[in-house]
Design a binder for these strands. Sequence first.
DNA 1: TTCCCGATTGTA
DNA 2: ACAATCGGGAAC
Length: 195
Amino acid sequence: LKPEPYIQDLLNKPAIQAAPLLLGCEIVRQTPEGELRLKIVETEAYHQADPASHSFRGKTSRTSPMFKTGGRLYVYFIYGVHYCLNIVTGPEGVGEAVLLRAAEPIKGIDIMAKNRGVKDIHKLASGPGKLAQALGIKDTKLSGQILNKSSIWLELPQVPIKPDQITASARVGITKAADAEMRFLLKNNQFVSRV
DNA sequence: TTCCCGATTGTA
DNA sequence: ACAATCGGGAAC
């Protein structure tokens, strides 16, 4: 798999710092059918002191990946229907991660359309459940795995993202700490989730 | 072991 | 607006 220079530096940071820095990065998955590649356009940060975070009540078998060093995957099953993909950040022992909420398809679009059962490119990864489904994630087997040592890895933005291209807002779908602005989006991007 | 509800999505 | 659908985790 591809070497990923400089990404680890980003992943060592706290989720609140890493979440906006992951915008513009590309998430890549190698599949038997071909390479899938998307540009991340929307993220949310979750940290240990945050009542909305799965790590808030401490480490459990499900959430243990969140407490590992940055650079792992955390996948969870939600609403009995969907899977969501997170990038674990920060140091060992601290439970935090960044939820990947939306992304712009770059490569392997036909494969992702097949995975999703939808053709419209704007509907392939415009939400966390859609993004995971586009990548072919159908279970939690990837949870806890290390980027680059699994089928998935990250690459830095081809063109660096400037701070004025990023917007922060309240997170989606949570009831606790609902006012905290820990959702980050690329301004004027057509591939973000609705709301 | 029971019970509640969730970091969502597609359809009515 | 609302159902689909199921597992995590708190409470009993």
